[in-house]
């Protein structure tokens, strides 16, 4: 395919700039309509975010007086100080504990399961059954199982604890993780496994030293995606906790908003603060996340 791509335009056109032509597939006039639409959507996305950020630096009295889209004349950090002083560091730690505590085991056990399914799934009825159960899990909405999960967590005496949120989070991360990871492990050439086995490597060694490094983009994608979902999760903390000191950030955000709904800049500062860690994660892992998601779902 690559050869037809490079030769055909030149044959067709015989023009002076074949390289330029390769880059813009549909030739001719620029597509103004689609271009316009994409810039309009860019504005729709950016304006609210811009408004959230600049407003979070305004004092409450200025907020009512100033033009909402003009950056603050006298920017203040008072809102951020107020948010940080109202136990947000505690909620932040809770969120970190729940997210790491759920994502790391979830990705590890999903990787092991995917590896087993791809390597010997064709021969093992048990693995085939597991795989179809995981695939079925993709269609189950989390909310639908929340009442029995609530009951199980109570009976395990884990109600109102961080571990009580971690265990179901692991389970709900498994189906999608297995789907994406096994799609990638399938692409590891069989010859590599065969030659490692000839060298006497065990399956565990092949998992760690062959499959894991070769599918690192998928592992990063799945890790970031699960971290995002669990970090932003609202229903599990809402239903499985009651004391304020067990809250994670989204739940804390919600009760903070209920408490200070009049102080819009402070509420928006709390929104910015809860998003900041995930934004940093995004900047670090952006390239792999974007390409991983497009490939993982496009398959």
């Amino acid at each position: 395919m690559a050869s037809t791509l490079t030769t055909k335009p030149e044959v067709m056109e015989g023009g002076p700039q074949p390289r330029h032509q390769r880059r813009n597939r549909p030739r001719g006039r620029p597509n103004w309509l689609a271009g316009l639409a994409s810039w309009i959507w860019l504005a729709v996305v950016i304006v609210p975010i811009y408004w959230i950020v600049i407003t979070s630096f305004k004092s409450q009295s200025r907020y009512y007086a100033e033009n909402p889209l003009v950056p603050p004349g006298e920017p203040t950090l008072a809102n951020y100080v107020m948010v940080i002083e109202s136990d947000f560091p505690l909620y932040f730690v809770n969120s970190v504990v729940v997210t790491l505590g759920a994502v790391i085991p979830a990705v590890l056990i999903s990787f092991m399961a995917s590896y087993a399914i791809i390597r010997t799934g064709k021969r093992s009825r048990f693995l085939r059954l597991s795989n179809s159960l995981f695939l079925m899990g993709l269609a189950i909405p989390l909310q639908a199982t929340i009442i029995p999960v609530y009951l199980i967590i109570i009976r395990l005496h884990l109600y109102d604890s961080l571990l009580g949120m971690i265990l179901p989070s692991i389970a709900f991360a498994i189906p999608l993780s297995v789907l994406v990871l096994s799609n990638f492990i399938r692409d590891v050439p069989k010859e590599l496994f065969d030659s490692m086995r000839l060298d006497g490597a065990t399956e565990t060694a092949m998992l760690w030293r062959l499959a894991f490094p070769l599918t690192r983009p998928a592992v990063v994608t799945v890790t970031v995606y699960n971290a995002l979902t669990i970090w932003n999760g609202f229903l599990l903390p809402l239903v499985l906790t009651q004391s304020p000191d067990k809250r994670t950030l989204p739940l804390a955000l919600w009760s903070f908003q209920g408490q200070y709904s009049v102080n819009v800049p402070a509420v928006l500062a709390s929104v910015v603060l809860t998003t900041l860690p995930i934004l940093i994660l995004y900047i670090v892992g952006r390239r792999q996340l974007l390409s991983g998601l497009t490939v993982g779902f496009g398959k």
Binding site: A106, I109, A113, S124, F172, I174
Partner: peptide, 16 residues
């Protein structure tokens, strides 16, 4: 290799 799928299956069964 079936044992490798057991932890994931246990979690998914228990909470799913």
């Amino acid at each position: 290799l079936a044992w490798m799928a057991v932890p994931a299956l246990v979690f998914f069964t228990g909470f799913g």
